[in-house]
């Protein structure tokens, strides 16, 4: 429900010919800070550890393939490698689940 609410759940008392499209900061807060996102990031990270093992490069590749259906570019790989030097894999998964490329279907 919180996710629906912030993403403009249609009003249940009147007909809704067209769903609203909005892009506001509260959606970012929910998608970035919510319990649900935390939980999904942890689950995503455990899957990466399970299927790709401890190898960082393999983890990055698998994360990109699972979430974005493609391999990471070299620039992306460098940035993510740097990130993982100080931050956790769970944290990387939280970022991936918030990427525009993941959130918006093409």
């Amino acid at each position: 429900m919180p996710m629906f609410e912030t993403l403009d759940l249609a009003d249940s008392v009147s007909s809704c010919p067209q769903r609203q499209i909005t892009t506001v900061a509260p959606q970012a807060l929910t998608l970035f800070n919510s319990d649900f996102t935390q939980q999904q990031s942890r689950a995503f990270a455990s899957r990466l550890r399970r299927d790709a093992g401890d190898d960082t490069e393999r983890q990055i590749s698998l994360a990109w393939r699972l979430a974005l259906c493609r391999e990471p570019t070299m620039t992306e790989r460098i940035k993510v490698r740097e990130f993982l030097a100080t931050e956790s894999l769970d944290e990387l998964c939280r970022v991936v689940l918030n990427l525009n490329e993941f959130v918006y279907p093409e």
Binding site: T75, K79, E87, V95, N98, L99, N100, E101
Partner: peptide
């Protein structure tokens, strides 16, 4: 600090996508 670092990575990746 982690929150900021994560947002920075998100921003950098999103900007490349944009």
């Amino acid at each position: 600090r982690t929150q900021r670092t994560s947002l920075d990575l998100l921003k950098a990746l999103n900007e490349q996508h944009l």
